[in-house]
């Protein structure tokens, strides 16, 4: 139990620092940045209660906001995906989720990709709608969501492939 807490605290800090110091300064094509810090929410253990994950997501988003001077847009987007995560999990993994024994290392690639895609697109859509905060610029919101999502999903997949433990 102690081990789990320390792993997740380290993951929290490392992801926030990498996000604000590296990933937010990529500025590919002027404005496209990946936001792979949502991996923390994606890989949070499922058996823990939802109150904990929502609170932790709020803190995660708020710490990113603090560094990036963005008000509360990351916090809002993180809380939102933390709340809808069970629905996305059910959609992507079906029966495995019902039995509550998903191991993210062992699930097949396709469903993992769908899971990341849904989570990322939801997160980015909430994020950019709040950032731009203007209905008349919906095209800009969708454009940013699309390009950043592609980048984030790519980044998330690369990170998971690199850091997956091969324990057979």
């Amino acid at each position: 139990m102690n081990n789990v807490i320390s792993i997740h605290s380290v993951r929290f800090l490392v992801l926030v620092f990498f996000q604000v110091l590296i990933f937010n300064h990529i500025n590919f094509y002027g404005y496209i940045n990946p936001y792979p810090y949502i991996l923390f929410i994606a890989f949070f253990p499922i058996r823990h209660n939802r109150i904990l994950i929502i609170t932790l997501s709020f803190l995660l988003g708020l710490s990113v906001d603090l560094f990036l001077d963005t008000g509360g847009i990351h916090a809002a987007a993180c809380v939102f995906i933390a709340y809808v995560r069970p629905i996305i999990l059910k959609f992507c993994f079906g029966t495995i989720y019902e039995h509550q024994n998903i191991k993210f290392d062992t699930v097949e690639f396709g469903s993992k990709l769908t899971y990341f895609t849904l989570l990322t697109v939801t997160h980015h859509f909430v994020l950019f709608s709040l950032e731009i905060f203007n209905i008349s610029k919906i095209i800009l919101v969708l454009q940013k969501t699309l390009f950043s999502s592609i980048f984030t999903i790519l980044m998330c997949m690369i990170i998971t492939i690199i850091f997956t433990r091969k324990n057979k």
């Binding site: 929502i54 609170t55 709020f58 603090l66 990036l68 008000g71 509360g72 847009i73 809002a76 809380v79």
Partner: peptide, 28 residues
């Protein structure tokens, strides 16, 4: 209810940051 509470706090911060010279708490 927790989701609603935290989500509205974040929205509050966002709205504050969108109004001139008001982002008192969340700034770098």
């Amino acid at each position: 209810l927790l989701f609603l509470l935290l989500f509205s706090i974040s929205i509050l911060f966002t709205v504050q940051s969108h109004s001139y010279h008001k982002s008192k708490f969340i700034n770098s």
